[in-house]
Design a binder for these strands. Structure first.
Lengths: 343, 343
DNA sequence: AATACTTTTTGACGCGCGTAAAGTTTTGTA
DNA sequence: TACAAAACTTTACGCGCGTCAAAAAGTATT
């Protein structure tokens, strides 16, 4: 780093011996200038500490390099993990990720996309809240900004959707549970906050009917995103109820199951598949902590990295193709049964 | 919303009947204009959809309204939770939070602060990686941008530090464990990734000496941030070792403890304080999931929201005082014993 | 009603960079 | 060596807003 303070691209043009428009081309895309010029510029960059002013750049470019990433609840390790995957892909593709969490709140979700609008992103990767999302306002946003939905779908909103096939994954675990013991009841929140809850409920109903069993829903009270707490509190209640229709419980997601396993432990229930067990509990998602429950949680895994990669790549291709609207694509990945000891 | 497209502040000046410089004042600080003009402007904002271009604003203002928030690992619920607290405070104070995760990687941490530099933030709230952080480069950054450290300290870096008093909190739990049973061994990673590990180790040594007991460190292998995995794998090994010096284990953090509880369960150990138990396990942090382990994890809580609030507020006051350097302040909050059933 | 004070308007410049047009140099090819 | 194509330089304008100075208008005080 040398002495003369480089204040702008003009200064840097002087010291590097390259004209400003060429520098501008270079910073926009280093491969767009001749190799010999590129070398000169990069040699100068070594010597002098200069970075283009990001605000001046974005003010004038019709399209920024920003990509918004919005997830429903970042403090949920499932979303934290998928967001981390997406973020890395966005950086590697040469974009600037702006990560926002809706904190489970539809108003925050709207405020997030409005705040994204003001930074004129090249595109947005949105995992919506789902049921509680303001579909109309989000749709309006997607008209203006190329957006790919992931994790949860909103019919007809955005350029594409990438997620898990809940029908398939729920069928997978329900069939497994039926094959290896008594058919499961389905444990969920009456007014579920998590995005795919309704899909999973209907998938459970359908596959139980198909297998010739009577579906049973345990729809418990509870608001918000503190799923473990709901699983624990309502699990304690449900497990103490002699009218519980089945001792095999499929939870709508792993976090509910984690809470319920804790409740079962407190109640002295022995959870698992061995003959002396009194209860089976299964979940859905393969949450990062699911393998450390007691016993380890049997669940269905979602392919985090495939979902992240596919949604990011389809956004990139939409951005590159100058937003020309093609048919709205839907990609759904298959769940995989993760057999541990809880069911 | 009316028809005429408002493209910039000039357009909005026309339709609102207020001059552009006055509008500029208003958007900078609504209270800086007369109430009557404010009303006129806000009436026009109701009718017309206009928001100042954020890039043009920030290009010209010497100070932006951006505040960077950097945490070591956002997929760790502890940091997710504290980051969520901080983010809310930043928004409420009228700033724009830019949340970044270092993903446990010192190179990423540097890349995060460099990327923050380019958006010219008014200030930064940084929870450093600690031991592995590039102290010199971070210090250099803090010379240019007002920065408050939280969670982990880097000596002499930044304007202030806000965190937990590890000496006090470790003493609290060690004294409790000694009072109620055999003195604990300390379980940690040999080369710990989490920021406060070393502080906790030395605090454990000191308080054990003070109480007249021989400290024992179990320093296990393991890299990275997959603490539950380390706790499980090495916990399995350690618990099977007949030479284990004490059946009371204090883990350096709750995530290690969660893994170890899982290992204990697998091994058929009964963890807890009742007479028939063979093992006691305690942690540190009061991790969001600590109450759902089997049994519930006895630990020391950190005051998330106090740390968040104090660090945010001290940054705000530094920003308002125009960065005039005062003495570097250090605030440490006391831990609180959280007695559950594991110890 | 006259005065002093506050607020707004008018007009103008600058921020740092994107980008276009026209002219000049370099490079690749025959 | 000549010549066309590609890359670069020069010149110039524009983006949307911050900000300043001077003039005008509005408000408060006596």
């Amino acid at each position: 780093m040398d002495d003369p303070q480089i204040r702008n691209m003009d200064d840097f043009a002087s010291v590097s011996g390259i004209s400003r428009p060429t520098l501008s081309k270079y910073f926009n895309n280093p491969d767009s200038v001749r190799a010999s010029t590129r070398k000169k510029i990069e040699a100068a960059l070594e010597k002098f500490d200069y970075r283009p002013n990001i605000y001046a750049i974005n003010q004038n470019r019709r399209q920024t390099k920003n990509i918004g990433i919005v997830v429903p609840y970042l403090a949920d390790p499932f979303f934290a993990e998928i967001a981390r995957n997406v973020e890395t892909l966005v950086i590697d593709a040469g974009f600037r990720p702006i990560m926002l969490s809706s904190h489970g709140d539809p108003a925050q979700e709207l405020s997030n996309i409005e705040s994204l609008r003001s930074i004129k992103p090249a595109g947005v990767l949105l995992a919506p809240l789902g049921r509680t999302s303001d579909r109309a306002r989000i749709k309006a946003f997607c008209e203006d900004v190329p957006t790919v939905l992931f994790d949860a779908n909103l019919d007809g909103v955005g350029e594409a959707f990438v997620g898990s096939d809940n029908d398939q994954s729920i069928a997978l675990i329900v069939e497994y549970l039926c094959r290896t013991g008594t058919p499961p009841v389905f444990f969920e929140m009456k007014t579920p906050a998590n995005p795919n809850a309704i899909k999973r409920r209907t998938a459970y109903m359908a596959v139980m009917e198909k297998l010739g069993h009577t579906p049973h829903l345990l729809q418990v009270e509870g608001e918000g995103w503190d799923f473990e707490e709901v699983g624990f509190r309502e699990g304690t209640r449900v497990l103490s109820d002699p009218a519980l229709p089945s001792r095999t419980i499929l939870c709508s997601n792993d976090r509910l199951a984690i809470g319920m396993l804790s409740a079962a432990f407190e109640l002295g229930e022995k959870v698992g598949i061995s003959p002396d067990c009194t209860l089976r509990i299964a979940g859905h998602d393969d949450h990062p902590f699911a393998r450390y429950t007691c016993p380890g949680l049997t669940t269905v895994s979602q392919d985090y990295s495939a979902i992240a990669r596919t949604s990011a790549e389809s956004l990139f291709s939409i951005i590159e193709s100058e937003n020309r609207r093609e048919a709205r694509g839907t990609t759904m990945f298959q769940g995989r049964l993760v057999m541990r000891k809880s069911a």
